[in-house]
Nucleic acid binder design. Structure first.
Lengths: 210, 210
DNA sequence: GTCTATAGGTTGATAGAC
DNA sequence: GTCTATCAACCTATAGAC
């Protein structure tokens, strides 16, 4: 499980305010970890506290209640999305650009689907996550699609991609394939038996060029 | 909400065995309904009983426990998948065939994502659903992909589709787009702001023919 | 901020009559 | 098969000391 800790950085950055003891971060990291392992229905504050090495009361001190804890954990897992969509896609040639982008999308989804799925278990969490995602353009799912679509549109203008192809739709299929591939193991409990990233990129390039 | 009831049919088909009173079916239908509305975390046997118009004890008589009830409800929502994959895809011309197929996939997913998501809330339910899906080839997600892939491969052999295109991957992108489109409203709480089915089909055809 | 101890409120599940 | 009544377990959340 990747480390979420920004403790060290935060501690050296600012000397004002309470020095973080790390309990809050530890609780969040453990929450995500257990969420992934057992699912939200088995996520008990008691166990979070035990594994995080804090008291149960500490959880409620930091997050008020269970829902507050979950929302915080959700946000922390979704936040990296901004880094992906905030800046446009680079350009290192069509194939490498698409490959890198899809890899980044999948890396994000690898963490995100855990909370996306978990949020569906409760109408309030569902609404809460939905509102959070709607709140920033860079958090909307279509954002990534548009980014790639615009990149492709640029190539289309410059003649590198043939005209007449709906580049936005092509981008949509690309991102869609990432979601399918990442979701697959959660549903089936086995590695995804679907075409790899490269195959999708290659096939899409065959569509765009040719 | 679509009716799941097969009461009448079952009653007239067989005169042997206990005549179904409909309680079991009613409980299942209500379970799915509440699952969709409020999420699995808010799904209480008490409320199911109330809305289904039966006693709480009746639920445990029919399904042993909560998990049994959920598994049964899951299966009922996933079962229609067989109808989709059991028979191959027809052939009414490329465009119409793909359009019809994607429509059918989405119609299925419209119901299925509810239980697919819900199952992720608990490691046992997750494993249980995964096992169920793995149990029959026609329930595996790659099955639909293969079906379309084979259909396209046939057209490729007959020359209707240009060679050199990875038809399996094309099929994968098609199905992927359905998952994305259907999942979108659950995540964002708004209608999907992504390319429509027809646009995907058209774009894909541009790839395959040309 | 963090801990311990505890209470309050739910909820799944059972027993037994009909 | 269905109901009513009841329970035992569990889990979130709070109070108060340190």
């Amino acid at each position: 499980m990747a480390e979420l800790d920004s403790r060290d950085a935060a501690a050296s950055q600012s000397r004002r305010g309470r020095p973080p003891s790390g309990a809050r971060e530890q609780i969040l990291a453990t929450t995500y970890e257990l969420l992934r392992e057992k699912g939200i229905a088995r996520l008990k504050t008691k166990e979070i506290a035990a594994r995080a090495g804090v008291s149960e009361g500490s959880i409620f001190y930091h997050f008020r209640n269970r829902e507050g804890l979950l929302s915080a954990a959700f946000e922390q897992a979704i936040a990296p999305l901004i880094a992906l969509t905030g800046q446009g896609v680079g350009d290192q040639g069509l194939r490498e650009t698409l490959t890198d982008f899809t890899a980044a999308v999948e890396q994000f989804l690898e963490r995100a689907v855990v909370v996306m799925f978990a949020a569906q278990s409760d109408i309030d969490l569902r609404a809460s996550l939905a509102q959070y995602l709607r709140g920033d353009v860079n958090r909307r799912p279509e954002r990534g699609v548009r980014l790639v679509g615009e990149y492709l549109a640029g190539l289309q203008e410059s003649g590198a991609i043939r005209t007449g192809v709906d580049v936005e739709t092509a981008a949509f299929m690309l991102v869609s394939s990432c979601l399918f591939r990442v979701s697959y193991p959660w549903l089936i409990g086995e590695p995804a038996a679907v075409p790899a990233r490269d195959e999708v990129v290659d096939t899409l390039i065959a569509l765009l060029e040719s």
